[in-house]
Every structure is written in C-alpha cells, then in structure tokens.
C-alpha cells in the first residue's frame, strides 16, 4: 500500500476533471427544463463550444479569448434551437438531434478547412487554461489541492450551482421562469411572455455548454478531437432528470458520473481493458436513473398507504 493519500487526491482530481463539463452543461439543461423546454442538444452545443474555444485560443493566443469564443459558439448554435422551438414552435427533440449531428459535421468540416487536420488537432499555439490555485486553501490536504486548484471555468462551474439555486427559488425572475415551464398559458394570462423566458433559458444553456466545451478542450486537455464530447452532453441530460431539475441534485449527479469516469480510468490503469471501463459512466448513469425512478415510484405509492 504505497501512499493511499496520493492516489486519492489524484482520484479526486480526475473526478473534478470529469465533473466540471458535465455540471456546466447539466445546469444549462436544468434551466431549460425549468422553462419547459426539453433540451437534448447539450451534446452539440458543448461540441461547438469545444471547437470554438480551441480556435479562439489558437488565433488569439489567449485562453480566455478561447473561452469567450466557446461561449459565443454555444449561444449561436442554441439560438437556432431557440428560434426553431420557440418562435416557430418546431419539435425541440427533432431540432436538437439534428443540431447535434450538425455540430459533429461542422466541427469536423472546419477542422479540415482551417487546419487541414482529421481526427485530433494538437498545436503548441493553442493556449490551455491554467489552474488557479487559491493561496493557502489549495495547501489543505486531500480535497484542498483539488477543490481550490481549478481553472477559472472550474470555479465558475461550482459557483453556478448556488447562483442558479438562488435565482430560481428566491427571485422574481426565477419564479416567473418556473411558472412559464409549468403552465405557459397561465403565465401569459398574467402578462409574462413564455417565449422570452424560453429564449433566455435556451441561450443560457448555450453559454453554459460553451463554457463546458471550453473546459473540455482547453482545461482537461489542450486539443480538439472529432466528437470529443462523446456522450457527455447526454449524461448531462440524464443528470437533470435524475436531480429532477434541482441545482444541488445536479451537482450530486455530476459527482456520481465524475466518480464513475475517474474510477473507470483508474481500473484501466490496473490492467482492465479500456473498452470495458469506458462504458462505466454510461452504465452508471443508466443504473442511477433506474434506481432513482424506482425510488420515486416507491415514494409516491407509500404516500397512499
């Protein structure tokens, strides 16, 4: 047993690496859910953000310009979803599925068009996000070196949870948003225009997914790979369902997936084939959903008796 502590803080570090993009995207999905839009386009929004972040960083030489362009790209793609689903009353599921495929296509296309690269693009000119250790706190043993040694995007992700919680449940905007999501007609009969809130929610999810993508391509690694989100956006969708659209619950769900990925990663180091450990987050996700639904079903029947 050599140095349990070292292994564990390494594990926590990879938990957080896995967690932050999923958390950001899931909070985006949560806002949409609360506004009554089932957004399954998180995957595509995140992928667009990841690409744009790499491009922005590459051309400007600044990681933060990269993050910003990731956010802009996420918002741009989500605006198509918002226009189609809200203004034109199109089916958000069809739109989101098509936009996910669009994002895969356009990023791979631009990879060739801009850098003449297929598959993975790595270049010294891409500036990655540096971690920003918080003095003293990051010296704390165990979690300290992980929790207080994140990138800027990482800190934003952890801050977003209480902020969204506060806005949703303690402010007028949050109250109106929840009302819109639950009964749009009731909201409009009182003069609240559901479309505006839904637009806002979808664009916000675009921005958050853009951030998530930037963390993925400039924080976790410094490169862009075709389809590099590989299902994380879908896991975020499930996180929202699992948490029944509560921010703190979403954090819990994201933690669960972070652990699944990190432990899978570690088992892989112990000689388990990567094909089996790679499946872990998806299986854990599904099992969690099944368990949660059962729990929920039981809870509601126990009320009866």
């Amino acid at each position: 047993m050599f140095s349990v502590e070292l292994l564990d803080s390494a594990l926590f570090a990879s938990v957080f690496r896995a967690l932050i993009p999923i958390l950001l995207a899931a909070i985006g999905g949560l806002i949409c859910e609360r506004a009554g839009v089932f957004n399954i386009g998180l995957e595509g929004l995140m992928l667009s953000g990841a690409f744009a972040a790499v491009a922005g960083s590459y051309f400007s030489g600044s990681a933060y310009a990269g993050v910003l362009s990731g956010v802009v790209a996420g918002v741009a793609v989500s605006s198509v979803l918002a226009y189609g689903a809200v203004t034109r009353k199109g089916d958000p599921i069809v739109l989101a599925v098509a936009l996910n495929l669009f994002a895969v296509g356009i990023t791979a296309f631009l990879l060739v068009a801009v850098w003449d690269v297929r598959g993975v693009f790595q270049d010294p000119r891409i500036v990655g996000l540096k971690t920003m250790p918080i003095p003293a706190l990051s010296q704390l043993p165990w979690l300290g070196s992980v929790l207080f040694n994140l990138t800027l995007v990482g800190y934003v992700a952890l801050l977003v949870v209480p902020v969204v919680q506060l806005v949703l449940f303690r402010t007028a905007v949050g109250l109106r948003l929840r009302g819109v999501g639950e009964r749009p007609l009731a909201a409009s009969s009182l003069g609240v225009q559901p479309g505006r809130y839904q637009y806002g929610a979808i664009l916000a999810s675009g921005a958050l997914c853009g951030l998530a993508g930037a963390q993925l391509s400039l924080g976790n690694v410094v490169q862009f790979a075709e389809n590099m989100t590989s299902g994380r956006g879908w896991i975020a969708v499930v996180a929202v369902m699992l948490a029944r659209a509560h921010p703190v619950g979403v954090l819990g769900a994201a933690l669960l997936f972070g652990f699944a990925e990190a432990i899978g990663f570690r088992l892989q180091g112990n000689g388990l084939p990567s094909q089996l450990t790679d499946a872990a987050p998806y299986v854990v996700t599904l099992v969690a959903l099944v368990v949660a639904r059962r729990q929920f079903a039981r809870a509601s029947t126990s009320v009866a008796t």
Partner: peptide, 30 residues
C-alpha cells in the same frame, strides 16, 4: 472539401424542415 459537408447538409435539411413545417417524430397534435 471535407466529406463532412454531406453530414452538414443533411443535418441542415432536417433543421430547416423542423423549423419550416414543424416536422415532428410524434404525429400528435400539440
């Protein structure tokens, strides 16, 4: 030109149709 252009065009077709005529996988009334 990257062959990905085909996936791009295909996805755009569906996005446009979904926007234009509100195509839906479930054919129910809204």
């Amino acid at each position: 030109v990257s062959a990905q252009i085909s996936q791009l065009i295909q996805a755009i077709v569906i996005v446009l149709i979904a926007i234009r005529v509100q195509v839906t996988w479930r054919r129910r009334a809204k």
